[in-house]
Computed example of a mutant assay.
Amino acid sequence: MTLSTQFATMLVMISMGVFFGASLDTYNRFLQRRKRKSWLVFLNDVLFMVIQGLLVFYTLFQVNKGDLRFYIFIAILCGFAAYQAMLKQWYLKSLEKMIKFCISVYRFLVKLINIFIYKPIYILITTLIAIIISIGKGLYTAAKWLLKCIVVLIKAALKPFQWMLTLLWKLIPKNIKKSVEKLYNKLAGKSLLLKNYYSNWKDKWKNK
């Protein structure tokens, strides 16, 4: 390994130490350990450390083909210590400002979508539903009125026939009327018997 490669490796590993410190603070800020279950925190910690290790090794591989030396770990620790001493407070403040900015942008976009997209669509849909309901009620009322008119017209059209039948019934001799009435009474009695028989049979079948 040449001297320039070693120097570049040192600088990159110091940068990775700084990056690790910033990543750790970011991770802790979003994890909120007190609100999480212990097993979930442990799992997240393991995944975080694995990802950080892979990033360090990948960066090291890009710089010096993955040649591990003792000073590499020293460089990472130096970078992490430098971050803790000089950059941590500034980074945390910047992180909070960035989070607040993102939240503000998100809320603004939500309000924008609510005002220009959601509410117009909601008003349009409710208006269409109200119009459809009104049209349906109007059609129902019109159909009901039309049906009444048709019934009245049919009754009016059948009225002359009713008068004619009444007149014919009056002209029929009394003995024929009596025969017709007897026949009607017999048929009515038989229909009543059939109805009772059917009801009794239905009750027996249900009891079975």
Rank of each mutant, 00 (worst) to 15 (best):
T127F: 11
L60H: 01
Q162H: 02
N64L: 10
K195N: 15
W163D: 13
S199E: 14
L153K: 09
F57M: 05
L55N: 00
K100E: 13
K170H: 11
A81R: 05
L139D: 10
L24V: 02
A156G: 04
V50Y: 01
I115K: 12
L183N: 04
F61Q: 09
Y197H: 06
S15K: 07
E96Q: 09
K178D: 07
K190H: 06
I123V: 03
G136D: 08
V18S: 03
I131L: 05
K97N: 13
L40I: 04
L192T: 09
V151A: 15
K204S: 00
Q32E: 14
I172W: 02
W90Q: 15
K177A: 02
K119M: 01
V56T: 05
K137R: 00
C149T: 03
N207M: 05
G66R: 07
K202C: 10
L183H: 00
K144Y: 09
F70M: 12
A142Y: 12
W201L: 02
A156Q: 11
S23F: 11
N175C: 09
V46S: 02
I76Y: 04
R29A: 14
N185V: 14
K186V: 15
W205K: 10
T127N: 09
T59Q: 08
W163S: 07
F48A: 06
F108K: 13
L146D: 12
N114H: 07
Y184L: 03
V151D: 14
D203W: 04
K35S: 04
L68A: 11
G138D: 03
P120N: 08
K155H: 08
T2K: 12
V152N: 07
D25S: 03
F108N: 12
L92R: 11
I123D: 05
F48W: 03
L192N: 01
Y27M: 08
K178V: 03
P173G: 07
K37F: 09
K204A: 00
S94N: 13
I51A: 12
L147M: 14
K100V: 08
A75D: 08
Q62P: 01
K148A: 14
P120Y: 02
R33N: 02
I99H: 11
L158T: 07
L168A: 09
K186D: 15
F73Q: 04
S134L: 15
K190A: 09
R36I: 04
L153E: 05
G79V: 01
Q62V: 06
N114S: 12
C102F: 13
Y27Q: 04
G53Y: 12
S199N: 09
I74M: 13
F30S: 04
K159F: 14
A130L: 00
N196R: 10
Y140M: 08
V180Y: 06
Q162P: 01
V12T: 13
F48N: 02
T26S: 15
I51M: 02
W145C: 13
A22N: 11
I129R: 07
K174P: 00
A82Q: 05
A22R: 09
L193M: 11
Y122H: 05
G136T: 11
S179R: 10
K37I: 05
E181W: 15
V151Y: 14
E96N: 06
K208D: 07
